[in-house]
Amino acid sequence: MKGHSIGRDRIITLLLENAVSLIMVLFLIFMVFYKPVFVSWANICNIINECAIYGITACAMTTAIICAEVDLSVSSTFAWSTVLCCMVCNSLGFAPAVILTLICGAIFGAFNGLLVACVHMPAFVATLGTMTAIKGLAYVVTDAQPINTTNEALKAFGAFEIAGIGTAPMVFLAVLLVFMWFLKKTRFGRGIYATGGNYEVSRMSGINVVFYKFIIFVLLGGCAALSGIMYASRIMAGWAPYGSDLALYCVASTVIGGTSMAGGSGGVHKTVVGLLLMAIMFNAMTMLGVEGSMQKFIRGIVLITVIVLDAFANQRQKR
């Protein structure tokens, strides 16, 4: 009898741990039968293209959350990057625009890193401040006006696709593989897990926790800038209000994917599941004829459900 009970417990824990993937699979099966067009190649490409731009920053956000930090300023860095990219495209051209935007994003990230790792400001407060400052800078530089660009190279970069898959998913895949590799296979990655798992123990063990705390913000700034470049290449414009939902989107997809906000565990591969679930839900609800307000409500309910299931799974594991 005890053996049966242990077996059942394991199955329940397994189901709870993989609840998101399970929900996604069941939902996909439902959609295949109810709306066959949902699984048409054109629509699959649409879903992949949609989650790729924010997905780039979500990879870095997951790394930050593993390191027990969070960055609210990515939204502003993203907006600033769309503006800077378009402005530099209009004056110096595509290649300088990409390089300058990435460097600028990394510098913003480094500033956040200094505030958090060296000045020991709470990340929430520090990045809340820089979020406002960077957004303000974008407004000042542009005089609050959107910046258009007609740069042909940027347009070609954004419009390039292979079998319906655009540049953004390709860049996202590359970023994802790099993050998966260094988080799992390198000492650098293990240092991030250790710092997020227990800061004090890691510090006393000789791990350079200040460096890890600093570097994750540089990565976040760089990735937010890269997302901004991809966005600008898709819509050929930059503006200060763009991407205002980026930070919350990244945190939500990380949490839905199953990475704990407490730090020290999780992974970017999990975030991909969260990203896909959000993009699939968004696309499917449009196809199912769900009205805008109801879509917001359902997305909120799914987020809460996933967090509750995650909490249940954690409790069972502890027992």
Binding site: K35, S244, N283, G289
Partner: peptide
Amino acid sequence: IQIVDGEENADKQLSQFKAAVADG
């Protein structure tokens, strides 16, 4: 008629239109 929230995001609106076109 179906009305969806574009959330002031041009890229999102583009995706919505693509999904709508695919849906006929």
